[in-house]
Amino acid sequence: MKAQAKAAQVEVARMAEWEALAMGDSGSARAHFDLAQRLAQVRGFQYQTLSTLLDAPVDEVLERVEDVQKPRIEGKPIENPAVIKAVLGAVPNVLPNLSGVLNEYFDLTKTRHLRKSEAQKHRWILSKRRAVENFLAATFPKHSQPIDQITRTDALRFRT
Rank of each mutant, 00 (worst) to 15 (best):
F45I: 00
R14T: 05
P96D: 06
E74D: 15
P77C: 06
Y105W: 12
I73Y: 12
K128N: 05
D148N: 15
L54A: 13
A5K: 15
A29N: 13
R115N: 13
D67F: 00
E17N: 02
F140H: 08
D34Q: 07
P81R: 09
V83I: 14
S26N: 10
A13P: 03
G24K: 03
L98E: 00
K121G: 06
V91E: 00
K110W: 04
E104K: 13
G100P: 03
T52E: 15
R115H: 15
P96G: 09
L126V: 07
T111P: 06
F106D: 05
A137D: 11
E19D: 13
G89C: 03
V68S: 04
S144P: 04
L108V: 09
L114I: 14
D59T: 07
R30P: 05
L126I: 04
A137V: 10
Y105R: 07
T109Y: 03
D59R: 04
R152N: 02
A131T: 12
V65K: 08
A31Y: 05
F135Q: 02
H143S: 10
D25H: 09
N97T: 04
A5N: 09
L21W: 09
G100V: 01
S28E: 06
V132R: 02
V132Y: 03
E104P: 00
K85Q: 10
D55I: 01
A40Q: 01
M15Q: 14
K76I: 08
T139G: 01
A16V: 03
P146C: 08
V68M: 06
E118N: 13
R123A: 10
A90K: 11
A29E: 08
I125D: 12
P81E: 14
F158Y: 10
S99P: 01
V65A: 14
F33A: 02
G75W: 01
R38H: 08
F45E: 01
P71E: 10
I78N: 08
T151N: 06
A31E: 09
D25Y: 11
V132P: 02
W18R: 09
F45G: 00
P96N: 09
L102D: 04
V68Y: 01
M15R: 15
E74S: 13
A22S: 11
Q46N: 10
A7F: 02
V58N: 06
K85S: 15
R64N: 04
R129Y: 03
E63F: 07
A138G: 08
F33S: 05
T52L: 10
V61R: 04
